[in-house]
């Protein structure tokens, strides 16, 4: 069964494939300890952001400023998506994490797919629906207060920061893996305006 939340655009549609410039990264999320993978998230995010900047050459102030904003935005979003994929990947499913980044005229598209624990899907979807329908600035404050009371190690602020600080549009697709119906896959799509 496929379920989408938000305005999810399939990666294989003509609209997305108009992006002639794209990068994909695929890696096993379970082959090395989380701590070590965490460092790789940063390296991957730095690379994606630095690579994208080469499409915006020019040394005038306006281009330089635009490049700085694009670089920081992609770096933050890609890092958060990869951190989430590593944290919430479901090891028993033994599936890899897949990242796609495509450049369109007015936005960068990022897709990250990983497997998740099927028992947490319903609760997670409930939270995501709130992100899509409620005031995200109010949710940010609510989450901070919750974090202070519960001392959570997971901040729950990543998606909200993408939306509030970077005007990103998010959507999710939940589906069963083709090779095993009991394995749940999630793809998060981020449209980052540039």
């Amino acid at each position: 069964m496929i379920q989408t939340l938000g305005d999810f655009i399939e990666l294989d549609t003509c609209d997305v494939q108009d992006s002639k410039d794209f990068l994909t990264i695929n890696f096993s999320a379970t082959s090395v300890p989380l701590q070590q993978r965490w460092r790789n998230n940063g390296l991957s995010a730095d690379f994606l952001a630095g690579y994208l900047c080469t499409f915006f050459p020019g040394e005038d102030d306006e281009t330089h400023n635009r490049r700085v904003v694009i670089k920081d935005g992609v770096n933050f979003v890609a890092n958060e998506l990869l951190e989430n994929a590593m944290k919430f990947n479901y090891p028993p499913a033994k599936c890899s994490v897949h990242l796609y980044m495509g450049l369109k005229q007015d936005k960068v598209l990022l897709y990250v797919t990983n497997c998740i624990d099927p028992t947490v899907v319903a609760a997670w979807q409930h939270e995501l629906k709130r992100v899509l329908t409620e005031d995200t600035h109010a949710l940010f404050l609510e989450q901070l207060i919750k974090n202070e009371q519960e001392d959570n190690s997971d901040s729950g602020l990543g998606y909200l920061s993408m939306i509030n600080d970077w005007n990103a549009k998010l959507a999710w697709k939940f589906e069963s893996a083709a090779e095993d119906e009991s394995v749940q896959k999630v793809t998060v799509m981020v449209q980052l305006p540039i």
Binding site: N79, E83, D154, L157
Partner: peptide
């Protein structure tokens, strides 16, 4: 140079 969402969390909690 860079602050991830967990870093945003700790600095915001510091301000609070």
């Amino acid at each position: 140079k860079f602050l991830n969402s967990s870093g945003i969390n700790i600095l915001c909690k510091f301000i609070m």
